[in-house]
Amino acid sequence: MSGANVANRRSPWLLMHALAVFAFLYLPIAILIIYSFNGAGVGGFPPRDLTLDWYRRLFADSAIWESVGNSLMVAGCAVAIALGLGIPAALALDRAQFPGKALFRRVVLLPLILPGIITGLSLLMLFNESRIKLSLLTIILGHGTALISVATTEVFAGLQKLERAQEEASLDLGANYWQTFLRITLPNLKLSIIGAALLIFTLSMDEIAVSFFLIGRNNTLPLEIWGRLRRGITPEINAISTIIFVFSLAAIVLWYRLRRSAEGPPEIAAELIETVVQGD
């Protein structure tokens, strides 16, 4: 990729700038983690009274765990919806011509590019006009719909790399479309699909702008945290955030292992970014 004289350059200024940006990006996360162990509560320098109390309190807090359960359920269903529609959509974009194809590609991407409030509110109006009560189901529909594009772009990129001759051979040898899809297409798309699922799951777990308007009686985790933040700040929030952060890191490491064993350098969401950036 790079010539020798390009690769081995040094620049102390750029390095310092990079380190400063990393400090800026990681400072709040570090503080969050440190103060989850701080007996004297959130804020206050220096941190004192190292304690696990906030974690103990967190584990006894049934409302939080209920919301974690809700979030996991919502994220799981969002993955199912987004993949269930995103995979066929990617196949359609790759193999079919239909009226409105260009419009479809754009509309699918809108929820990722527009501020979440617009998607959230327009869905709220839809549910209101069709007299559907807000509940976790409406949040699932919102997340699933907003994240179809993630599945579509990742799987579409996978399809571009797929050798179509394999599918042709399978069809020529007498397998039907469904068998060909299950035995040839799907296994070849395995990595794209797992990658998309991981990304959709994480995005849904963290989503708040759309959920904010579609919430019924049961909270997702971000909305539960939001409710507590409005009442005042507590290190319990630091504790749950630290736990989620550790899980996210574990998911990333897992993903890299998986990806590295299969192909070159891993880039989460690279296809998605390319698509969103290029707009078509």
Partner: peptide, 23 residues
């Protein structure tokens, strides 16, 4: 990696940093 930390949580972290008895 910071993108994997909840938006809300990072905003909250800034609140604990910038508050009048914050960090």
């Amino acid at each position: 990696i910071p993108l994997w930390v909840s938006y809300l949580v990072r905003a909250y972290a800034w609140k604990t940093i910038l508050g009048s008895d914050g960090v």
